[in-house]
Every structure is written in C-alpha cells, then in structure tokens.
C-alpha cells in the first residue's frame, strides 16, 4: 500500500502548479522537473547585479571553458549513475590520459610527423581511458563487486600508475599546436566550449532517444527486471563505464591543452566535484533517474558560482562551504518534496 502511494508523490506538485496559462505552466513544470535550472537563473541574476565583470560575452565563454572539464566527465558519470553505479576513478584517469598524451607526442618515433604527432598521442590517451573504463566495467560485471569499491580501488591504483609512469614529474607539450588548440576559437566560441556543447547534445540524444538510453534507465531502476527481460546487464554496464572512461580521458586531454602541460596530480578530487554536479542535476545515487539537461545545469551552477565568487574576490574557501551547503540543501529539499508518498510511517 505504501508503495503504490509513493509513486504518486512527486507527480502531484507539477500538475497542481501547472493550472495557469499553458505557456507559463509548461515552463514552470519544466523548471520543477529541473530545479537546478531555477538555481542557475538565480545565481546568474545575482552575479550580474553584484559584479560588473560578470555579465559579458567574454566571461560567459570563460565559464564554458572552465566548466568543460568537469562537464565532460559529468556526462559520462550521469550514464553510470543512472545505471545505479558510480565511478570514483575519473580523477585519476584525467591525470593518466593527460600525462600519456603529452608524453607520447614527444616520443622520438613521431618526431618527423609534424603536427600529426598529436594524433597517435590523443588516440593513446583516449584509448587508455576507454580501456580502464572497460576494466572497471568488466570487474563489476564478472565479480559482482559493488562499483563503489571497484572504482575506489581503481582510483588509488590508476593514480599509482600515473606516478610510476611519470616518475612524479610534470610533462610539457613540446608541440605548440597542442597548446594553441586549447586557446583557439571556432565561430566565435572557444573550441573547448564547442567540444563540451557538442558532446552534451550527443549524450542527451543517446540517453533520451536510443535503445541503449532506455536500457540505461531500466538497469538502474530494476536490475532484476532488466535481467528478466533479457537485457545483458553486465555488458551494458561495461559500455557505460567505457563511456565515462572516454570522457574522463577527453577531459584530461582538453585540460592539458589549456595548460600546455600535464602534472601527475591533475584531476585530484574531480570525482567528488563531478558527483556533486551530477547529483545537483537531479541524478539519483540509487539509479534509474536523472538526465543530461539536469547534469548540464548542475555543472553550470558550479561553474557560475566559482566564476562569480572569484570575480567578487571572495576567497576560494567560501566556495567550498557554499558548495557543500548547496549539495546538502538540494538533498534536503528533494526529500521534503517527495515526502507525501511515505504516508507517515515512522521509521
């Protein structure tokens, strides 16, 4: 009985609030489906009023480039988390891909290749990410060990690999075209912003329109049902781990093009930031719920907050406190909004 009521809880609110004129009601309902965007609008207006430097095209481009790193990983993390899994190793993969790419393009073998030497390096970097994702996925599939533990191990192990591989050294990109790419623009937008936006749209389409996307929700929502229906859950989850591995590697590469270098400590704590952004965007840790529009909002919220507070010259540490507070507040609000369903059983 409690179960049947629980399902009705969340749906009530939008319907009741949506009784006004149709244009307003549909946008209101949309906002309630993605509460993070309301927050994005609020902080956007707030910083536009509070500081002169915020509201400018140049700054918006900045924000997009700054968020692109976290944002790319968050795209993949959304898939993995909707699956009911998690990937804590993304930060380490960022460092590995960046170090590999920057190092390999300097190998003597490719010396005569000119700018083409970047190509095998990038392929190797991305390949390493996909491979590590596949390894995580394979272990989760074949051993049945919780993804949290598997990727926690990988987080340590891959970081260890990075330190051993680099000998704890930073690498610098000898090919200047690499660093130029990170600073380049295309049709008036920074190239890195384009990369982020294009992949956002792409993953959104995959998740909302394709069979793989529908299966992603099904597996996270009710794994037993997915198995019963004949979905090959193990390989399916592995693919999503490979996707998040790809995006973590891509983020590492774009980050190193911005710096023209890689450091072995690159991407530390990224897993926590990415999970924060994804959860802010409405993805449930228990799986089965979430979407890319929300995740994009979550990433932007963090990006605008960091950027705006930086412009207001608020010390960086307040951002940490505010971010933690927002994360808990969002969780608290979500709990309150969905509460009616419990019918007051005191557990």
């Amino acid at each position: 009985m409690a179960e049947s009521a629980a399902g009705q809880g969340p749906s009530k609110l939008p319907r009741e609030l949506g009784k006004g004129s149709s244009g307003w009601s549909s946008s209101l309902r949309w906002l309630l489906g993605h509460p993070i965007w309301a927050f994005v609008v609020i902080v956007f207006i707030f910083f536009s009023l509070m500081t002169d430097d915020f509201f400018s095209l140049g700054n918006f481009q900045n924000i997009l480039v700054q968020t692109s790193t976290l944002g790319l990983i968050a795209l993949g993390m959304t898939l993995v988390m909707i699956n009911g899994n998690i990937d804590l190793s993304v930060g380490a993969v960022v460092a590995l891909a960046a170090s590999l790419t920057v190092d390999i393009m300097g190998w003597p073998v490719f010396e005569s290749w000119g700018n083409l030497q970047i190509l095998p390096a990038v392929v190797a970097g991305l390949g390493a990410g996909v491979l590590l994702g596949a390894l995580n996925g394979l272990i989760v599939w074949k051993t049945g060990v919780d993804a949290f533990i598997v990727t926690l191990g990988a987080m340590l192990g891959v970081r260890g690999l990075v330190f051993v591989y680099t000998g704890e050294q930073s690498f610098f990109a000898m090919n200047f075209a690499y660093a130029d790419f990170g600073a380049s623009s295309f049709l008036g937008l920074p190239t890195l912003a384009w990369v982020f936006l294009v992949f956002t749209v792409l993953v959104h389409i995959v998740l909302s329109r394709t069979v793989h996307g529908a299966n992603t929700y099904a597996v996270g929502d009710n794994r037993e049902a997915a198995v019963n229906a004949g979905i090959r859950v193990g390989p399916h989850m592995m693919i999503n781990f490979m996707i998040v591995g790809f995006f973590a590697a891509l983020a590492g590469i774009t980050l190193s093009t911005q710096m023209g270098a890689s450091t072995p400590n690159l991407g530390r704590d990224y897993e926590l930031w990415v999970i924060t952004a994804t959860v802010l965007g409405g993805t449930k840790l228990t799986g089965g719920a979430g979407n890319i529009i929300g995740t994009f909002g979550g990433v932007l919220a963090i990006g605008i907050l960091r950027n705006g507070m930086n412009l207001m010259q608020v010390p960086a540490f307040y951002v940490l406190v505010i971010l933690g507070a927002i994360l808990i507040a969002v969780l608290f609000l979500d709990k309150q909004l969905n509460r009616q369903g419990e019918e007051g059983l005191r557990l």
């Binding site: 999970i275 924060t276 010390p315 540490f317 933690g324 927002i326 808990i328 969780l331």
Partner: peptide, 21 residues
C-alpha cells in the same frame, strides 16, 4: 534521513572550506 554518501560528500567540501577560513 538523508543519503549518507551525499551528506558527507557535502561536508567534505564544507569542512575543507571551514578549515581554510
């Protein structure tokens, strides 16, 4: 009764900030 992973993740960030402050 909030999810412990997210609460303590939030606290991880907040306490780090508190320390710096």
């Amino acid at each position: 009764r909030l999810n412990s992973l997210i609460v303590t993740l939030g606290m991880l960030s907040a306490i780090q900030g508190l320390t710096l402050i």
